Simulated assay, not measured.
Amino acid sequence: MTKPATVDPKLLEYATSTQARYIEAIKEHGSIRAASRALGVGKSAIQDSLGRLKKAAAVRGYAPEFDLQHAVAPGQVLRGASTLYRDGQPIMQWVKTRADDVAMAEIMRAGFEAMASELPRVKPVKAPKVTNAKLANLYTLTDSHVGMLAWHRENLAPNGDWDLSIAERVLAGCFEHMVNASPAARVGIVAQLGDFLHSDGLEAKTPTSGHILDQDGRFPKVVQAALRILRRVVDFALAKHERVVVLLAEGNHDLASSVWLRAMFKALYENEPRVEVIDSELPYYVYQHGKTMIAWHHGHLKKNDQLPLLFAAQFPKVWGDTEKRYAHVGHRHHVEEKEHAGMSVIQHSTLASRDAYAARGGWMSERQCTAITYHADFGQVCRNTVTPEMLEAA
């Protein structure tokens, strides 16, 4: 007689809602296989999820099979444990903890994947009837800083205010202008090039240096606005192009948020075969369009003149298969373009206003976004630039 499967009920304290549902189903039906049939979920998916749960619990200090029975403090992870045994029984234990960024990142990524698995999928929509198979339109939004609060009295700029509602109107409106002004290319690339969110969590500060940021509203409101904007721009692109490639790049302001954005949008458009989300943990990204190489990096880790050699070394096959090559960066909030040996590097401006920090530092730039059309054989063939003022004139 097969022994019924059991799962340690204490693991529920560390489980996501999906993992808790799996544990309850195993308890009710007696085995992982039976729970799999009842839930309509693959057996391996349940096993993998419970494996992640055990790892997450162990990082928090709970792994009874290894004599770890006590959870560590919130915000801490297990660094190590020393146990003194007598006659095979533990009689004394030393537990060391610390904030382990790598382990926390793994837990965070698993959590994002779990949340994404429960998102309702977008239903496929009809593709446009006529597109040019040789063309790819690149629509770049960089350093959008959704959630930033800027005041025209501090930046001395006409229309210099920036908040959640303004960001939503300007970003979606300018993107729509770019799409409408561009040729009917077969491929449309939505390149969100990093720093889409102004802050990376509940505390309004930069994730690496801890600088205090001017933020409009609570972080959940910022997340909701960011998702609405990105959903709208992807839908605009789907109406125009037969195939849509979505890049959600890592920036220095949104190191963690770029992870959950990629996980969520990959899940959202899972059932839409015309959408491809570039899923890369490495913050250097490439797309090959015929003999044209299109590359991206936010700009926070490497300088512009270092990128051609880096992309040649990181992606030698794409480099070798192409004749026209372009790298796109943001980060510095102003336009700059230079042709290097083998690759042109194009630095894009931002649509966002200057916040108080930028205004006091004297950093200025023309607010704009640019759509660039690439030909599979000839490289760049067309550009269209949009400014926020064009929305007021429309």
Rank of each mutant, 00 (worst) to 15 (best):
Ala150His: 02
Glu65His: 15
Asp279Ser: 14
Lys291Val: 10
Gly251Val: 04
Val187Asp: 07
Ala172Thr: 15
Ser258Pro: 08
Pro120His: 08
Ala184Tyr: 13
Ala256Glu: 13
Leu135Trp: 11
Phe378Pro: 00
Ser349Cys: 07
Trp151Ser: 10
His289Gly: 02
Lys3His: 11
Gln347Arg: 11
Gly330Ser: 09
Asp67Pro: 04
Val386Pro: 00
His211Glu: 07
Gln288Val: 09
Thr387Ala: 12
Val7Asn: 02
Met148Thr: 06
Glu270Phe: 13
Met104Gln: 13
Ile372Val: 12
His340Gly: 01
Ala181Ser: 11
Gln215Pro: 00
Ser165Gly: 08
Glu389Tyr: 13
Ala105Leu: 12
Met104Ala: 11
Val329Gln: 07
Val170Ser: 07
Gly40Val: 00
Met364Gln: 14
Ala167Phe: 06
Arg228Met: 12
Lys3Ala: 14
Ala184Cys: 09
Leu138Trp: 01
Ala5Lys: 06
Ala127Arg: 13
Thr18Val: 06
Gly379Ile: 03
Val286Cys: 09
His300Tyr: 07
Ser144Ala: 15
Arg274Asn: 12
Ala327Met: 10
Arg33Val: 10
Gln306Arg: 05
Ser165His: 05
Gly88Thr: 05
Ala226Glu: 01
His300Phe: 02
Leu164Tyr: 07
Gln47Met: 02
Glu336Ala: 15
Gly51Asn: 06
